[in-house]
Amino acid sequence: MSTLHTVNKSPFERSNLQACLGHAQNGDSVLLIEDAVFAAIAGNTFAPKLADAAQDIKLFVLGPDLKARGMDPAKVVDGVNIIDYEGFVDLAAASSTIHSWL
């Protein structure tokens, strides 16, 4: 039993990612999509929080959303896995519940 959390907002605009990380349980997965992908790039001030969260939570970022926004996949924070829509579906199927943080 684990939850897939999706987050779609930049942490610089809204608190969704922070709220999500504050509630996700050990072993849950968090997937950054849409404007949340900016959080996954090394060097941003939110990155240390992600790196910290990666110890208990599986972190993912949606590749097509990264690419669309000109973000370099090579610069993604360590511990964050890049997946495509098929990977998204696999994650959703493997989790018992999906919680979209809107």
Binding site: N8, E34, Y85, E86, F88, V89, D90, A92
Partner: peptide, 19 residues
Amino acid sequence: HQASDSAYRFAKAAIDKGH
């Protein structure tokens, strides 16, 4: 908003995977 596009891409990928 990108929401509808994201939902569509997700749905299509799910169907492609046999769901």
